[in-house]
Design a binder for these strands. Sequence first.
DNA 1: TGCGCCACCTA
DNA 2: GTAGGTGGCGCAC
Length: 950
Amino acid sequence: MMGDNQIDLFGASDPAPATPAQKKPERETGEKKKPGLYLLDGMAMVYRAFYALQQARMRTRDGVPTGAVFGFASSLLRIIEEYQPEYLAVAFDSPEKTFRHEKYEAYKANRPAPPDDLITQLADIRELIKAFGIPLVIMPGFEADDLIGTAARKFEDDCQVFIVTPDKDMSQLVHDGVRLLKPGKKQNEFELVGSREVAEQFGAPPEQFIDLLTLTGDTSDNIPGAKGIGPKTASSLLEEYGSLDNIYAHLDDLKPRARKSLEEFREIMPLVRELVTIRTDLDVPLTLDDLHSGKPDADALFALLRRLELKAIAARVPAALGIDPPAATATDGESDPEASEVSAEPTLIPAGEGSEYHLIDTEEAFGKLLEKLEQADSFSVDTETTSLDTFEAELAGISFSLEPGEAFFVYFGETGLDAKTTVAKLKPLLENPEIGKTGQNLKYDILVLKNYGVELQPVEFDTMLASYVLDPESRHNLDDMAALHLSRQTVKYDELVGTGKSAIGIFEVEPQKLSDYACQDADITLKLRGELAAKLEATPELLEVCRTLEFPLVRVLADMEHQGVSIDTEHLAKLAVKVNEELVGLTERIHEAAGETFNIDSPKQLGHILFDVLKLPTKKATKTGYSTNVQVLEELALLNPIAAEVLEYRSLQKLKGTYIEALPKLLHAATGRLHTSFNQSITATGRLSSSNPNLQNIPIRTDLGKEIRRAFIPSNPENLLLSADYSQIELRVAAELSGDPMLIEAFRNHEDIHAATARVIFDTDEVTSDMRRKAKEVNFGVLYGIQPFGLSQRLGIPQKEAKEIIDTYMAKYPGMFSALQTTVEEARKLGYVTTLMGRRRYVPDLNSPNGNIRKAAERVTMNTPIQGTAADIIKYAMCTISRRLKEERLNSVMLLQVHDELLFETPADEQSRLTELVEKCMVDAASKCGVRNVPVEVETGVGKNWLEAH
DNA sequence: TGCGCCACCTA
DNA sequence: GTAGGTGGCGCAC
């Protein structure tokens, strides 16, 4: 990487300071401000920049990755802009093995090689530092940490030292004159970390930090700590005994578990301590002058930034470094507007610039527009309304764009046209199946127009969903997409009407301004369609996901939301009375047992009662105190009945607050029903989500939960509810993906799959219920990206046992084993995972240097094809069912989707036809989506309410 | 009023 | 161990 192998420093081309060197501050003038010395932890900052900007996928037009360079340069500039450092240097590790490798073979052995995209940027970063005129410090055999530690110690009397690093291990260097600057959550913000902050964050002051790190070890460097001793235990031990040596001097006072662990650890402790200790005593010929920036090389710097198309950085350089771009290579502002898509902070042009927008507020102008629209075969449309609630919303106007660069706004305000009659004139073309409609979140427009008797169709392209399919975890709102894909700065809705109390109604906005805003949205939407469609076409399977699943589903979901579902408020009212009585009793008993009244809903107060007042043993800590969650309370229930009462209280309170009392309030005044929103562009896997209210998490497990389900009833009392759900769909998908013959065979034979798994992994025909339970957890584990830690937690067994179970499973189902492995390997190479239909999810963290983050990404990678394929299947089924219901002219309607279940309302005489149709569509959907080797089963039920139907 | 955190509901 | 949403508390603004 850093190719130079000179023994000593190599730095700026010109060691002479750009400004006359500050005189070293005189000793005695303690008041006088000391110069600042800023030491950058190079590689750590590079890594951080790389991952922080990975999502943005920054590249030059030629595809050269630039995110890390951008992030690093931006941080560097920020330091210069904000602190104007007298001394500034960047340290990097030497490429050779260091003394730590010699002492400990496995040092950093678990570090994966840096991703290719990062490696290619290292040379650029190095060039950048040189062009900035900043000294680069590298010494063979030593890591950047040690160089920084040594420099910090050496110069802390003469300077205020700031170590710029995201690495917590550096906390040990914090001292009177030494502080850390840690990159914050927001790009380009730094958090100043002094002694107090270290103590707050880690529960140990910097002086104890080495001992703390020794005890816990450092997984990222593959350095073991004392087993079973985590940060919390370590810091409380250190608080009590002051130092590691003193802890060892008092081993006998410790709890047996900690003692045993520390005894085992004793042998390697000195080595660990040496490994985690950052050296501050290297014998290196470093002088303060070596750390002084030289003159920046303007030619080299601007040439580099130009090559990498980092305009935003180039723009900051003149002010920060006091240099100007060479005349010939001046950064281009206007000359090349299209080029900026890939740069991080492209100069955005106003969205409306270069476009023609027309306010339509006369019959004559409207007549002309109508003619145009009738002759079009496709256009974009956007409604402006008085409310985000689609049932309340009144139209303020509708904008259209037939070709990029021109848009029209039909205005319904006082000075405009009459909404009702105008919409009636638009109706035939809005409903014309031959004229394709493009929009941003068309479901909203469909719902609004329904109130005006218009069934907007067909959904030819939805930019929000196209963006979602291209990258589900990117941002899908119009403003961000305009900036990202079009380098356009949009006028925001808030800028139009203001915010908070000073916000005005949409009809109070000046018509011309509203028109420009609305036209902008239609215009941008159509332009975005062009960009997004091109990207989809480059990946045909993603285009197919849009065409066959997402776009057709928009109408289906709009219809479901509009339909709504009825609930039996009287039933809920009765439940409320019962639950309230029980809660009053529980509250009394809990307060009595506590000896005082307190707020049971407050985990903080509850913790105080349980652990301070009643002195019950603590089990688990959270960030803010001791955990009082279900697992903890269940354990405590064995010691004190109050815990069981609290559990009961919690469960009742939750159901009461979230459902029994909340749902009746959410009934819509106009329809008397519950209208959820099905969000189609939220989840990373392709599932839907539901909100306002969330009807995908209605209780079912407990008795009270079942009673809540009983409250969901048909809108027409003559009708019935029909529920149809896929049986074990995710396991079947997993079996299909694995191709594992044993697993597939079990499904073909209609076996009890958990029992079958138990038989295989426990190698017996006598499967006990406990074996089945464990096997069930293993099966779930496979779906969730199985790892020993997780299974051990779920089953409450040691990690070692969990590992054995997993090993056995994988040995018995080799197809599953290799499929999971291949999935992760492929994803690591490609950067994304796919469902059977080709839906994508990017998983950049598979290359993270942080073991925990990487493992989490591996689980995501294993789960996404399974969860995502199941989501694709039910989406496909919903589309075909909706179509078939219309074709068959049935009066049944789809009400809800709950991931593997569909709920319908049906007239009694359609019940059997509906059942047959739904079953067939659901089963067929699986094979259409690629599940062809494993049979898929659907279970249906009918009843007077959701509980009976299920 | 907004936000992070904890806890807990679903598939 | 995967994917979501909501309610209440407690704090900062």
